[in-house]
Amino acid sequence: MSIPGRPRRRVALSSYLYLVPALILVVGVVHVGIVANITYSTLDWNGISPNGKPVGGDNYLKLLNDPTFWVSLRNTLVFAAATIALQMVFGFALAVLVRTRAVLRGLLRTLAFVPVVLAPAVVATSFRFLLTPDGSINGLLSAVTGQTIEQPWLADPSTALLMIVLINVWQYTGYSFLIYDAAMGQIDTSVIEATRIDGASTGQLLRLVVAPLLSGSHLVLIVLGVISALKTFDLVYLTTAGGPGTTTQVLTGYIYKQVIDQFHAGYGAALSVALVAIALVFSVLQVRLSSREAK
């Protein structure tokens, strides 16, 4: 009588085999990496020698008293809030515009997404040179205003972070547009017709009917926006490298600087643990959202 039971068990066991490749890579790199980070964060270590000096929680104490950490955290959050807000507003506006009868709306739909597929490294490097005092952007502004404009946009502490935000907005508004465009396509047109017949203006229609119907998209864009802001590195590293001073430094850039430039691997690990903790919250949110959307 053991025969009927046996094949079933073999089938069950073989089911686990399909999970093995993904688990080896994800657990091996991500989970082991996080645990290792926690261990390394208790060391005074340069990242190369086989052993560091145990220092307990000193790196975390240092972190709490490190003004650059707080500036980087603040910049990361400001960057996240500003890029998300602007990209949502502009993305929404573009999704409305391609639904009007304006000429060239088809071209707009295609072009809006072109910057999204470009490498952030290429976009950042290009804007770094376009935004120099004698760069093309000042040239264009001078031509338009008739004055000589030689603003060092990325070297001036008062405009540097704003510029990084705007470069990101230029590159990724197409993504918000894509999400809104897909969601607007699913709105029942009879709802719009009815509102029109009731005499609503376009502004009222957008504000009171369309925007609330897209609440799922708003939420998705906020969560994805925070995640991509936390990951942002190339853009800052290749435009200002966190400068002038630390005015545009972000968490990823600060970790890179501590670990790769200054060999403070133990302290870098403590910074990484802080970043992982923030990222984990948003992993959970994204999985919740995405699974809910799929039902």
Partner: peptide
């Protein structure tokens, strides 16, 4: 949501 940079030390 993990930024790759958070793993550079290990």
């Amino acid at each position: 949501a993990l930024p790759g940079i958070a793993l550079i030390v290990p």
